[in-house]
Amino acid sequence: MEDRSLSREPSPGFSAAACAGSNIAFVKYWGVRKEPPGAGMPLNPSISMTLREAVTTTRVTFRPDSLPERDTLVLNERPGPPEALARVTRVLDEVRRRASLRAPARVMSSNNFPTSTGVASSASGFAALALAAAAAAGLPCAPQDLVDLALMGSGSACRSLYGGYVLWDASFGQEPEANPVRQIAAEDDWPLVDLVAVVSREAKKVPSSQGHLLAWTSPFLEARLSQARTAARIVEKAILDRDFETLCQAMEAEALSMHAVMMTSKPALLYWLPETVAVMQKVRSLREQGGVPCAFTIDAGPNVHVIALPEAAPEVRREIEALPGVEEVLFCTTGGGPRLLEADGPCD
């Protein structure tokens, strides 16, 4: 006979909605642990800035009387692909286990930014999902309570649980009781602008999940990890000191070292296009010859994030938009952490 004290069913329509911003990493991780403890966790710390204008809004509704008796996902007003639904269900299963719930969920999620533009929707998406699902199930919703849930969907999502500037410590998995994510500075402490130069909208042929494992085949991985750990300390201090010049040097060198690992893995990963290099060269020219405070960083793809001081952003944007092959320049600023919504309105 079933012990009903171990499970409870929410009333129909038991739901919550949340929104969360994406983030851009100033110090990135590339390569993950292959064996326990901490299998799948990054080999080095990472530091990111949460973005205000690139937001995912997600509603989670547990429906015990719904048919079919499985989770459903609507993503940008279309049925979510099977691989995305599988990741969402992994998060929801953990929520159900913690809350002793027995009910499928309907998840409706939308981004206010275009896809395949170099802005990571998985970070904002799973941060919003973790908060909305926890709230709908009546679980604690403080950022530190949501880290494990967000990580089940996307590594970078745990950084989007906080606003401003965020450090993810790579020691996670070795000491599970320790919170691996912390805020370095709030969004108002040092406003910066992220100008995303979109040079391609094509999906990556090799997803990051595969690339992380290929990192082990690069002869430069160990040197890169040492450099990234040092860069994390330098970048954290630069953020606290509002030292843009130091941030520029460390951020660009760190991104280039990560791509060196990609280019020397087996098989080699070359995400750059000629337009990628053109944007990088323009940014360096603006800074070194024109004294314009701006610097680049590049994720696993061809699009370039140009970080600038707010007063320089209009000039930088004009210069980047004028380059041949740049399809669009997205404008993002430093944003806050995720929040619950009282209604289905947008996350302003």
Rank of each mutant, 00 (worst) to 15 (best):
L340W: 00
L341V: 02
S156Q: 12
P12F: 03
A322E: 05
P346H: 14
P36H: 04
R318H: 04
M1W: 07
L240C: 12
D169S: 01
G38S: 05
L92D: 01
A278K: 12
R59S: 14
E9P: 04
S226Y: 13
A127D: 10
E288A: 09
E77C: 10
E252D: 03
N76D: 11
N303D: 09
S109W: 03
E83F: 08
V283C: 15
M41W: 15
C294V: 02
N179T: 15
L269Q: 13
W30K: 13
G38D: 06
R59D: 09
P314R: 06
A16P: 08
L43K: 07
G80Q: 04
V166N: 01
P68K: 05
A322S: 11
A238S: 01
L167D: 04
L256K: 02
L131I: 11
D194V: 03
N179I: 08
S209Q: 14
A17E: 10
T56C: 04
V166M: 10
E245S: 15
Q183I: 10
T230L: 10
V304S: 09
R70D: 02
E328Q: 06
F172K: 13
A134F: 00
G31L: 13
M152G: 04
N23G: 13
A313C: 00
L67R: 13
L247E: 05
K28W: 04
A313L: 05
A278L: 15
D189E: 09
R52S: 03
G163V: 11
P140D: 00
A278T: 03
G155N: 07
A105R: 02
R233A: 04
G138N: 12
W168P: 05
M280R: 12
P314D: 11
E202M: 10
E328C: 02
G125K: 01
M263L: 11
H259S: 06
T297K: 02
C19I: 03
P36M: 06
R4F: 10
K28Q: 00
V32Q: 08
F244T: 00
H212R: 13
T115V: 14
R159V: 03
M108P: 11
S7L: 08
K282E: 13
A308D: 07
G38Q: 15
E2V: 15
P310I: 01
F220W: 07
T276Y: 03
P180C: 00
T334E: 08
M41H: 11
T57C: 06
S46L: 04
L269K: 12
L221I: 06
V198K: 08
Y29I: 13
K266P: 09
M251W: 01
F220D: 13
A18D: 05
A260G: 02
D344G: 13
S15P: 08
E254L: 06
R182T: 08
V326D: 09
T217A: 09
A20G: 02
G164S: 05
A127C: 03
L341T: 13
K205V: 06
N179E: 04
N76L: 05
G155R: 01
V166I: 15
N76H: 02
V55N: 14
L131V: 12
Y271Q: 15
S122E: 10
T50N: 14
E69D: 07
A99Q: 07
A17P: 15
P191I: 00
L225F: 00
L213Y: 07
A134M: 06
F244E: 04
S121V: 15
